[in-house]
Measured scan of single mutants.
Amino acid sequence: MKVMIRKTATGHSAYVAKKDLEELIVEMENPALWGGKVTLANGWQLELPAMAADTPLPITVEARKL
């Protein structure tokens, strides 16, 4: 699914347009965010693609819901 990742004042957030859902990312498998699992505030887990740590945000990526 397409997910937009952006930086907020409190960390990172994910927006899933198909579900009209925006949630804070509360847990990251990798400190650089990319190439691992993230957990959203509502409990969803997404697998993000591997990208460079300095990838500019906001960005829309293809993520997989676990």
Rank of each mutant, 00 (worst) to 15 (best):
Met1Lys: 00
Lys2Met: 15
Lys2Val: 14
Lys2Tyr: 13
Val3Cys: 05
Met4Val: 13
Met4Tyr: 08
Met4Ile: 14
Thr8Gly: 07
Thr8Tyr: 09
Thr8Ser: 09
Ala9Thr: 11
Thr10Asn: 14
Thr10Pro: 04
Thr10Lys: 13
Gly11Arg: 03
Ser13Met: 13
Ala14Leu: 14
Ala14Thr: 05
Tyr15Phe: 11
Tyr15Cys: 09
Val16Glu: 02
Val16Tyr: 14
Ala17Arg: 09
Lys18Pro: 10
Lys18Asp: 15
Lys19Ser: 15
Lys19Cys: 15
Asp20Met: 11
Asp20Leu: 09
Leu21Phe: 14
Leu21Met: 13
Glu23Thr: 13
Leu24Arg: 13
Val26Lys: 03
Val26Met: 07
Glu27Met: 10
Glu27Ser: 13
Met28His: 12
Met28Cys: 11
Asn30Glu: 07
Pro31Ile: 09
Pro31Ala: 11
Pro31Val: 10
Ala32Asn: 14
Ala32Gly: 14
Leu33Asn: 04
Leu33His: 02
Leu33Ile: 09
Trp34Tyr: 01
Gly35Phe: 05
Gly35Lys: 03
Gly36Tyr: 06
Gly36Gln: 03
Lys37Trp: 15
Thr39Lys: 10
Thr39Cys: 08
Leu40Ser: 02
Leu40Met: 05
Ala41Tyr: 06
Ala41Lys: 08
Ala41Val: 03
Asn42Gly: 06
Asn42Lys: 01
Trp44Cys: 12
Trp44Gly: 00
Gln45Cys: 12
Gln45Asn: 07
Gln45Leu: 12
Leu46Thr: 00
Leu46Met: 08
Glu47Met: 14
Glu47Gly: 06
Leu48Ser: 00
Leu48Cys: 00
Pro49Ile: 06
Ala50Asp: 12
Ala50Cys: 11
Met51Val: 05
Met51Leu: 12
Ala52Gln: 09
Ala52Ser: 12
Ala52Tyr: 07
Ala53Ile: 11
Ala53Thr: 10
Thr55Leu: 05
Pro56Tyr: 07
Pro56Trp: 07
Leu57Asp: 03
Thr60Ala: 07
Val61Ala: 02
Ala63Val: 13
Ala63Met: 05
Ala63His: 03
Arg64Asp: 04
Arg64Gln: 11
Lys65Val: 15
Lys65Gln: 13
Lys65Trp: 15
Lys65Gly: 09
Lys65Thr: 12
Leu66Ala: 09
Leu66Lys: 05
Leu66Val: 14
